[in-house]
């Protein structure tokens, strides 16, 4: 699908008068910065204790949960992050496997985030340290970021009549900005299932665990040779390794191309240097002038003949 789409883009460019130019990454500010952080979630280690949910709730001063965090029956029903819980853990039963797999869900902090590209006022930004953060003072509540997110992560405070916010994990931006700071969930995890560090290091760690599992990991069986988030939608700061294939755990199969590459190519193609709008304006002006000339002559020749059929 990817190849055919890209191939068709060239057709579209020809049809649209070669309006599709090269994507301008410099403008987007979406290029992964040199020192960006990442997190690795090792699904072989997580046992669904919900401590990360508790830590997130405290760190973000969220309202108390519907059921206390030590009530582990909550994980039985699949959940999604909401405006009251920025991260959640779901239990996934896997056929032919004795133990279930627990999957933590939160914002993936994409390298080239669709929400950031979509946001009409730049209320969402990709920070140099890798976090995708939200500024409520700019937001007008159009919710296009929610339409754009390929992971369907951002939630909205629909119950708030006048000052609703888009809510999602912000990578504990304040904490990790400080020296030695670690996201609350990663710090709290008793199983050390969440490793935090520079994205490149975290990626190396993931590769090492896959190729050379330690004794602690061996009892859960080896990892499948895939790192979810390494390439999906242009790569994400949060990545996962798993003892079972990701498709069996409900992870979405996503293309390697980040969604903004297509929309920004079209957008900047049309507006590059305002050449296309200016040319259209001038051309139409010329046509208007030519026809005005003709109608003047007709008028001089006696009668415009309008209304005749």
């Amino acid at each position: 699908m990817n190849i055919s789409r890209r191939r068709f883009l060239t057709v579209a460019a020809a049809a649209g008068g070669s309006i599709v130019a090269a994507p301008s990454r410099a403008l987007s500010g979406a290029r992964p910065p040199a020192r960006e952080y990442g997190c690795l979630v090792d699904l072989a280690l997580c046992d669904g204790c919900r401590k990360c949910e508790l830590a997130c709730n405290q760190a973000n001063a969220l309202p108390p949960p519907d059921r206390p965090f030590d009530d582990l029956s909550v994980v039985e029903r699949p959940r999604r992050p909401t405006d009251r819980a920025l991260t959640i853990v779901n239990k996934v039963a896997v056929a032919g496997r004795e133990k279930p797999v627990y999957v933590k869900v939160q914002c993936m902090h994409c390298n080239d985030p669709a929400c950031v590209s979509a946001c009409i006022v730049g209320a969402l930004t990709k920070e140099p340290n890798g976090a995708v953060v939200y500024d409520k003072s700019r937001c007008l509540g159009c919710r296009y970021c929610m339409v754009a997110c390929p992971f369907q992560v951002p939630a909205y405070e629909y119950r708030d009549p006048l000052t609703p916010r888009v809510t999602k994990c912000n990578f504990c931006f304040e904490r990790v900005s400080k020296e030695g700071g670690v996201p609350a969930c990663a710090k709290m995890c008793p199983k050390e299932a969440i490793e935090f560090g520079p994205r490149a290091d975290v990626l190396s760690l993931a590769r090492e665990r896959i190729s050379n599992p330690g004794t602690r990991h061996r009892k859960h069986g080896p990892h499948v040779p895939a790192i979810y988030g390494e390439h999906e939608v242009g790569g994400t700061a949060w990545m996962y390794i798993s003892p079972v294939p990701f498709a069996q755990l409900g992870f979405l199969a996503l293309p390697a191309e980040a969604p903004p590459r297509l929309t920004e190519a079209i957008q900047h193609g049309i507006f590059n240097g305002f050449i296309f709008p200016a040319a259209a304006y001038s051309l139409l002006g010329l046509v208007m002038y030519m026809f005005r000339d003709r109608s003047d002559r007709k008028e001089n020749g006696g009668g415009k003949g309008s209304g005749s059929r």
């Binding site: 403008l27 987007s28 979406a30 950031v116 590209s117 979509a118 946001c119 009409i120 006022v121 730049g122 209320a123 700019r138 007008l140 159009c142 296009y144 903004p260 929309t263 920004e264 079209i266 957008q267 900047h268 507006f271």
Partner: peptide, 13 residues
């Protein structure tokens, strides 16, 4: 807000 907070990558902008 779009009048003051320009975001040229956004199609919605």
């Amino acid at each position: 807000h779009p009048m003051i907070y320009w975001q040229g990558n956004s199609v919605l902008f």
